[in-house]
Design a binder for these strands. Sequence first.
DNA 1: ACGCCCTCCTGTTGGC
DNA 2: TGCCAACAGGAGGGCG
Length: 271
Amino acid sequence: MPELPEVETTRRGIEPHAVGRRIVALAVHEPRLRWRVRDDMPGLVAGQRVLHTKRRAKYLLIELESGTLLLHLGMSGSLRVLPAETPLLTHDHFDLVLDSGSTLRFNDPRRFGSLHYTTGDPHEHPLLATLAPEPLDAAFNGDYLWRTTRRRRVTIKQLLMNSKLVVGVGNIYASEALFRAKVRPRRQARSLSRVEVARLARAVRTVLAMAIRVGGTTLRDYVGADGVPGYFKQKLHVYERAGQPCRKCGTLVRQLTQGQRSTYYCPTCQK
DNA sequence: ACGCCCTCCTGTTGGC
DNA sequence: TGCCAACAGGAGGGCG
């Protein structure tokens, strides 16, 4: 499931193949993604050179000479570097064909992904403008999380997954960060102490950084741009480990549902 | 402003 | 063994 580390891994994977290359064509095979891919997009991006690749939250930004492509991988999307002549498979929705003979091919079985093109400052695009600070930037720290959690009655797990407050943390890393911070997922956000929010801010950063280092988490079918899975699954402490012994204390990991999503935690390690 | 819930989609899993 | 319901999940959007 692409969360921030998987998107960053994808970005690093495509960057050496894409930057400096010219886009020969954008071939859209299935425009019905989360939002319909605009019919005029191929004409707008064809012929442009790729200047940079960036990431904002879980959005992958491909900066061109006259604008920026905003790609979201949704829950099941992947963007791979392939030879342009590679036959299409089911759920291959578009190709960004480069003048190198390679293509950036987007595959997404569930079609929760999206592709936008914007001219001007991409950070002012409606999808990006209201996002919270990057968790790996200095602005995301204990002070920020302290201000953010005050007076909030929502549970801390659900707060971590609200992209207006914290970005990049999805279901996997929310459970893992809370384990690392020794905080139970059902606690009200406002109930956390100064020490706990500081620990949690640090845990979010550490978990994301560790996952990036090993290419993200592959639970089922996520692969990076080179088709290689991520290895963070082997380092998960609680996620999808219900009924198995906690790696720290041996207590059986518990599972519960919050906002129609599974949460995992250790009742001994987390208070 | 906040919090809750629904929605999009399809492959996989579990229960009968 | 086969069928079908439930589940998984990112995050925008609507509603109270």
